[in-house]
Design a binder for these strands. Structure first.
Lengths: 226, 226, 226, 226
DNA sequence: CATGAATGAGTTTTCATTCAT
DNA sequence: TATGAATGAAAACTCATTCAT
């Protein structure tokens, strides 16, 4: 049985198998986050998950793939969380139309921050992945960005055309936006304790997004109550 | 145990020891950056440095302390590099007075980016440190920030008072400024290849610093040729 | 984790594990005795036992515990051997009643000597344990004594009451009896070659036990043919 | 320069060298006794002695010879102590003549016990030597015995001829006498705490020496107040 | 499919010994 | 002679991975 599963294969798995898989993944997230990739003993994950070590290997092939699956799992959770926070696909569309791109970017950033504030283990996983697999594997969080950046790019491009955002290279703006979130999350989860992440990101965004706003429209922005 | 040693003998001794120490440190930086903390075999560092493994342990105690010393070394190099780029202490003072805080922040960020672009290993070291020693050790890069943030804070505070920067919480601004650099450096050194780091940071700064600029002064800024 | 296992399967499993355990123990006894605790490489034991080094560690945790288990194993063998030599529990009781305490003490000492003469490795183990773990661990041979001394104490006490042994502090007598055996075994296995241990202990006992005999009964004792 | 020194070479050493040698020996005794042979780091001995590690090696050749020299040193101290306790050569002669062999043996045993009670490190050294060098080196304590046993043998032989000791093989008696002291010292220094060693040996001797006494003379012995 | 005992390659670390100063 | 920095052989111990049950 291949360990790398296609979407279809995954769907084909019995509910029971899915449950076991997620059980392992949940525990591996905790352990990897706490002990780091190198410091993690797969046996510990198996014990916490209440399965044999062989079962873990059957499902994920090896430690590296287990970790990568864990990282992917985190990102999926992040994606779902952000979408839910924005109220779903439709509400997101409406948000852009009714409140503009800037506000949308702000809310996305805020949602991301909230996710990592509530799931600080995901921060560790992200860092571990970057640290361990820098060259070997294209980090899933970058892959995740790649998936999402198209959206952000579009958002920004349209906003530039509409005059809501001043004229900048959309790629540059997207990068800067992502980098600021990324840097704030990593630093913020250590420095500010776990409860200050949203505040830190919101505050940073307030400045950054102001930098994207055309001068004449700045005064029009309503004060916010974040 | 020597009965008496002249100052010169002492200095000569410590100079020799210093040389050996730096030799080891330089090689450990390369290896740790390439292999990661967990993936590094101290023997390899010793071989590259042309010394016995015991010598490495004699100088640094254990692998962890060797790594931490390496990380500290990187930050010291960064500090020296930035200072040199700005032209030294005095020139830095003049820079602020003649070109303002915004321009100074831009140049600092640019210098930091240039350092990491030229010394991409330092990026890996920084990430490794964060990944391996998250809670155990207060990361030296944060310590480094703590040392420098006072200066940035002052800079921003004064600029706010002088009207060059719009009214924001200086702590927040400093955090955001640092986080953006941090995030850009980590992402940029992977995504853009090694040569694009300065461009990425400069571009991000262009947006971010615009967000710090009061509206009426924005138009006055000259276009930059990054 | 097996869902169900019959009693037999469990017994079979533990029997197999027991066999492997005893296999390791037997070889560790040889190696520890020959090389000493410090001089022993666990790998050698594993090789001789025909198992992987990891298996040894899996079963015994670390070198120290392996050694301690070995020492305990020796003492168990000693206990079984002595009991067997005396003909079992019942025969021992009869021995006391029919031939008296003195004769019993002599036979016990003789059996102990015979064991160590046939299993000189056990002597080395005992010494190693004393040498390496003096304060850390309460030596198992002393623990062993503690278990047996109650019996010897009783024996002597009863014999004093019955007039077979002259009036002495039973604790003192037991100590002296044990110390003499202990000292003879340790010295004898080196000095006299391996074959003279029983003779040495018997001869020493002849003198010592005479010292426990009331004067008037001494002349009654029949000459022995050791 | 040879590390193994003849008596003459030793005497030829300057007082200063002698002092340094004894300084090292005194510290090595403490460290070997506390840490065991394998657990001892020669550097620690050098540090305590206030000399360089090279100096230790210059004087003693290697760790093994350092240990052996330490063991020998202990035995020399023991010999001197016992002789002093008995009041010197002459007094010893008189002791035998005036109080008999039995009393002399008792006093020797008591003196030995007192030495080990006051210098418990010497016990550890003795055990370590036996444990580490069982076959390689003929243990110095046995060598020591060999030197002294001649005297004890003579003593016993003469006492048998004189009727003070009952007819036994003198070699056997000497062995048993030594073994009992040996066993008591090793056990006693652990079990009874350090302060009970003399009492333990005295009590054991009381019984053992009774076993050497002819029946008819037993009643003549005065009760002792140990 | 699940399990967990077995394995041994791979690493860290120590420390006896040497030798240039 | 004295020193102590340098060395590297040696060993303990871990844990990812396999595979017989």
């Amino acid at each position: 049985m291949s360990v790398k599963k296609t979407e279809n294969e995954l769907k084909a798995l019995s509910a029971k198998a899915q449950k076991k898989r997620n059980n392992i993944l949940g525990n591996s997230m905790r352990v990897f986050a706490k002990e780091g990739f190198g410091g993690t003993d797969v046996q510990v994950i198996a014990d916490l998950a209440g399965v044999g070590k062989g079962t873990v290997y059957r499902h994920f092939g090896n430690k590296e793939q287990l970790f990568l699956a864990t990282a992917k799992h985190c990102l999926e959770m992040l994606g779902q969380f952000v979408l839910k926070e924005l109220g779903g696909e439709q509400a997101s569309q409406q948000l852009v139309q009714q409140h503009g791109a800037i506000e949308t970017l702000r809310q996305i950033a805020s949602a991301v921050a909230l996710f990592y504030q509530r799931t600080p283990q995901a921060v560790e996983i992200m860092i571990q992945e970057r640290a361990e697999f820098r060259e070997t594997v294209f980090p899933s969080h970058l892959m995740h960005r790649a998936e999402n950046r198209a959206g952000v790019d579009e958002l920004i491009k349209a906003a530039i055309d509409g005059g809501e955002i001043r004229v900048v290279d959309p790629t540059i703006a997207t990068n800067a936006y992502s980098d600021l979130i990324y840097g704030s999350v990593i630093s913020g989860c250590l420095e500010g304790g776990k409860s200050k992440l949203v505040a830190r990101v919101d505050a940073a965004m307030e400045i950054f997004l102001a930098g994207l706003t055309p001068e004449n429209s700045k005064s029009k922005r309503k004060p916010r109550n974040s």
